[in-house]
C-alpha cells in the first residue's frame, strides 16, 4: 500500500482544524469544527490546533481561542491575502509536515474542498468527504468518520489504519457551535512562509461578491423540489412573509432554477430552522438529512404516498401551486387584520 509521508507511528497526538475567515469573523463551519474537535480532544487529553492562512488575521486568533483552540498556527503574509491553490497548499503542507498532527478537519466549502483534495494527494493520505459525524476510537486512537452512504438511511464508518493525517471534510451546519469563553487564552505560533515565486502562477484578475445567504441559521426555510416546476418566486413570497429564506433539492439546482448555495441536504446545507416547509419534494434521504434538525417540518405533496410525509409533522396532500398561494393569502389576510 502506498504510504503517507508520515504514518501513525510518527504522528503527534493532536487534531488540527483548518480555519476560514469571512466577513470579519471565523466562518460558521470553522467554529462548528472547533467545537467538535474540542469534544474529541477532551476525551483523550489531546491538543486542538487551528490552522489559519491569510493576511492581517491576527485579530481572529482570540475568536479561535474563545471557541476552544489551544494553539493557533498562523501564516500571515501578503501573498496569502487571496486564496490561491498553490500558495495555500504549500504553506499548509509545510506546517503539517513540521507538526505531523493525527487529524486534519476542514469545512466542505469550495476553497477548502479544493485545498483538501490537493493536500491529501501531496501527503499521500486519505480524505473522507462530507462526514456526518466524527469519533475517536479510544482504543485504537483512530478517527472514525461517519458518512451516509447510498440513499436509504445507511451509515458507513470509515477509518484509516496507517495513513496520517486522517483528513475529513464536514458540511456547514452539520455540527453545532458550542459555548464561547471570551476569557480563554491560547498560543499563537507564526508559520514561516516560504513561497518560491515560480510556483505562484494563479493570477486573480477580478472578483465580485454581492449578497450572501447563510441558510444554516435562518428561522424559516421554504424549500422547493422538482414538484414546484421552477416556480421559486412563489416560494420566495411565502418565505418573505414568514421572515425566512428559500432553499431547494438538488434537481432544481442542477436545472439552474436556483443557486447551488441554496441546495439543502447531504451535499448541500444542513439547516436548523424553527420551521421547514417542503414543497413538491419526494423525501429522498439525501435531502431529509438537511432538515432533520428543524423543530417543525411541514410537507406539501400531491402524492399521498410520498416518503416526505414520514419525515413531517404536518402533512398536506395537494398541489403546491394551489396550496402555497392559499397559504400566502391566509397569512396576508391575517397580517392585515393584525396591522389594521
Amino acid at each position: 500500500m502506498v504510504a503517507s509521508l508520515y504514518g501513525a507511528a510518527q504522528e503527534s497526538k493532536s487534531i488540527w482544524v483548518y480555519l476560514e475567515v469571512d466577513r470579519g469573523g471565523l466562518t460558521g463551519v470553522s467554529k462548528e469544527l472547533i467545537t467538535k474537535g474540542r469534544q474529541i480532544c477532551d476525551q483523550l487529553g489531546w491538543q486542538l490546533s487551528g490552522l489559519l492562512l491569510g493576511h492581517h488575521l491576527q485579530p481572529f486568533a482570540a475568536e479561535g481561542f474563545a471557541h476552544g483552540i489551544d494553539t493557533l498556527w498562523l501564516a500571515d503574509d501578503p501573498r496569502l491575502e487571496n486564496f490561491t491553490i498553490e500558495a495555500y497548499t504549500t504553506v499548509a503542507y509545510d506546517a503539517l509536515m513540521e507538526v505531523k498532527p493525527s487529524v486534519l478537519l476542514m469545512g466542505a466549502t469550495p476553497n477548502s474542498r479544493d485545498l483538501a483534495g490537493r493536500l491529501a494527494v501531496r501527503l499521500r493520505t486519505g480524505l473522507n468527504a462530507d462526514c456526518t459525524d466524527l469519533y475517536l476510537d479510544p482504543e485504537t486512537e483512530r478517527l472514525v468518520c461517519e458518512v451516509s452512504g447510498f440513499g436509504g438511511g445507511v451509515l458507513a464508518f470509515i477509518e484509516m489504519a496507517e495513513h496520517r493525517p486522517q483528513m475529513a471534510t464536514v458540511r456547514p451546519g452539520v455540527f453545532t457551535p458550542g459555548e464561547v469563553d471570551r476569557d480563554r487564552v491560547g498560543v499563537i505560533i507564526e508559520i514561516e512562509v516560504n513561497l518560491d515565486p515560480e510556483i505562484l502562477t494563479t493570477n486573480l484578475v477580478e472578483r465580485s461578491v454581492g449578497e450572501q445567504v447563510d441558510l444554516t441559521s435562518v428561522p424559516v426555510l421554504v424549500t422547493g423540489g422538482r414538484g414546484v416546476d421552477g416556480d421559486f418566486k412563489m416560494l420566495a413570497q411565502l418565505a418573505e412573509l414568514l421572515g425566512g429564506e428559500i432553499g431547494a433539492t438538488r434537481p432544481p439546482v442542477d436545472e439552474g432554477h436556483i443557486e447551488r448555495e441554496r441546495q439543502i441536504g447531504q451535499t448541500g446545507v444542513v439547516c436548523s430552522p424553527k420551521v421547514a416547509i417542503c414543497c413538491g419534494i419526494s423525501g429522498a434521504f439525501h435531502f431529509v438529512v438537511g432538515i432533520e434538525k428543524a423543530d417543525v417540518v411541514v410537507a406539501i405533496n400531491s402524492d399521498p404516498e410520498a416518503l416526505i410525509f414520514d419525515y413531517a409533522d404536518y402533512c398536506i396532500v395537494g398541489d403546491v401551486h394551489q396550496i402555497v398561494p392559499a397559504l400566502i393569502e391566509a397569512l396576508t389576510v391575517e397580517r392585515e387584520v393584525i396591522l389594521g
Partner: peptide, 12 residues
C-alpha cells in the same frame, strides 16, 4: 492503493 476503509455499517 486506497487509504480509506469502510469498517462498519449501521442504520441511520
Amino acid at each position: 492503493g486506497s487509504p480509506t476503509v469502510v469498517t462498519g455499517l449501521a442504520e441511520a
